[in-house]
Design a binder for these strands. Structure first.
Lengths: 216, 216
DNA sequence: ATCTTGCATTTTGCTGACAAAAAGCACCTA
DNA sequence: TAGGTGCTTTTTGTCAGCAAAATGCAAGAT
């Protein structure tokens, strides 16, 4: 009875993407409750697609079942945050291991190109550009595993931890340091020595994790 | 009282569980298409809960979007199967690493109790009993990581690969061999040397994976 | 024969509504 | 005052149905 022509199809995705964005960008803060009916009004759709979007985000761990009713933006205790990063840490290390075992010239090139973009953005102190480039860099590594299942898990963690990792990059120096760290990491991964690659990634992740936890 | 889980969505969960069971037990074979309306009739519910159940199973990777329409039971090429097991392999190794770093007496005891049950079932050549005990054994290891997020991922892979792993246990000797293999694995994990633990798990998984792939 | 083209059928995504469960609330009792 | 007790409001799970999109199909064109 409202809104005549909506883009038939894709309402669920639209809602999901919008919520994801709101959460990443901090419009919705951790612990905030989400009301189905409210979202219904906001997006001009009925409860069914809203409900499915919420359900998907819950499955991804972005939202959690609220204490009494409904869902809320996941908020993590310090300990839970540490556990999530520990898991992510292990996944990344595993990715590095796999990549080092089967790096192709194409993959290597993609990673290097992504890294160049990181350096440029870092030097220009372009935060949002750097975040995007950094994302591409890591995604390129995931893809280089040649294993979509590993890549998916790694990607999921990255999405989930996005809001927390973002806080790490406060100053120009943070960006430069991260870009330098990428270089070291790459040299390990491209060494084709899986032991060195996983150790290198482990060091990278430990460092990154410490800074992130400090910033949260 | 861990089982006092909320019973939100009785029908959805009923459908989801039933389908999961059908898939594990082979009633539904890989590649088989699932028709919403058919399921609607079978379970005597409307499309909404059926749809949500399918959606959840799809998110878990148990079902995949069909080529033309609808969803179908995931079927994997040999290569995809290898990739899934490679990923699972890495996750299990990571779990072993973590466990070895912080094994508690309680966790150790749980693992040992589960292993005892495995041995008993294996010696009695009780296949379904062994599968259950084996499941408990691995879940005990996951729990011992103290990291619910790692445990969740590992558990998801286990569910997903269940149908394929089951085929590995064809003879009495297979069960006994698996039980023996557990013993070796435990000695590595309990060594509190993370390098040894991950190497041990890596060997265990490689062996197990080779047999599974051979049986599929 | 093969390739369009238009129509009929099936499938999907979504809507609005409803019944039941849960949470809030006011009142009563001890 | 603390602790029930029953009623009201809110929230949730489910339903039946509709309209768009996808698919199948058959007649006509090339």
């Amino acid at each position: 009875m409202e809104k005549s022509e909506n883009t038939r199809g894709g309402a669920v995705q639209r809602v999901e993407a919008a919520l994801l964005n709101d959460i990443s960008s901090g419009v919705l803060s951790p612990g905030e409750r989400l009301d189905e009916v409210q979202l219904t009004e906001r997006f001009g759709v009925s409860r069914t697609p809203v409900r499915e979007a919420l359900s998907r985000l819950t499955a991804q761990g972005i939202l959690v079942p609220g204490a009494k009713r409904g869902v809320q933006v996941a908020e993590y205790s310090r300990e839970e945050l540490a556990q999530i990063f520990e898991a992510m840490h292990e996944i990344e290390v595993a990715c590095a291991r796999i990549v080092s075992q089967r790096i192709s010239l194409l993959s290597r090139s993609e990673i290097e190109i992504a890294q160049k973009a990181c350096v440029i953005a870092a030097e220009a102190n372009d935060l949002s550009g750097f975040l995007q480039a950094n994302e591409n860099f890591h995604q390129a590594i995931y893809r280089a595993t040649g294993n979509p299942y590993m890549a998916q898990i790694a990607s999921d963690f990255r999405r989930r931890t996005g809001p927390f990792r973002a806080k790490k990059f406060a100053s120009h120096e943070d960006l430069l340091a991260s870009a330098r760290s990428h270089d070291v990491l790459m040299s390990h991964i491209f060494s084709e020595d899986s032991g060195e690659a996983s150790a290198g990634m482990r060091a990278h992740m430990t460092e990154s994790f410490m800074q992130t936890l400090a910033a949260n």
